[in-house]
């Protein structure tokens, strides 16, 4: 995923896949498979952001705050909290910076 893809992502990928910050490649893949191995959509993007250690590091470095933990990905998606993923934070910054 490009840098802009991560910056635009509105959700917390850890929440979406239902994995913790201490997760590993196997756990992420297992979570993606449990979700039906989607090849497109937000779950697929979340998987791309977390699928291996370099990707996870990249996602962490480009996120302004620590991700919250959640075990119920479906409920997190339904809630759509105001601030969850990097996209919401960057959007808020952009709103403040507009004249």
């Amino acid at each position: 995923m490009t840098l802009d893809d991560i910056l635009d992502f509105p959700y917390d990928p850890w929440i979406l896949l239902g994995v913790t910050r201490e997760t590993d490649d196997k756990a992420v893949e297992a979570a993606w498979k449990r979700a039906g191995s989607p090849k497109s959509g937000i779950l697929s993007e979340a998987y791309e952001m977390l699928r291996d250690e370099p990707s996870r590091l990249r996602t962490i470095l480009l996120n302004p705050r620590p991700y919250a933990r959640a075990t119920d990905a479906e409920s997190a998606m339904k809630k759509h909290p105001v601030y969850v993923g990097p996209g919401a934070w960057y959007e808020a910054i952009a709103r403040r910076s507009r004249p």
């Binding site: 480009l62 302004p64 960057y90 910054i93 910076s97």
Partner: peptide, 11 residues
Amino acid sequence: SRICALASIRY
């Protein structure tokens, strides 16, 4: 500095 960088990335 990392946070500062993130705050500036977009514009």
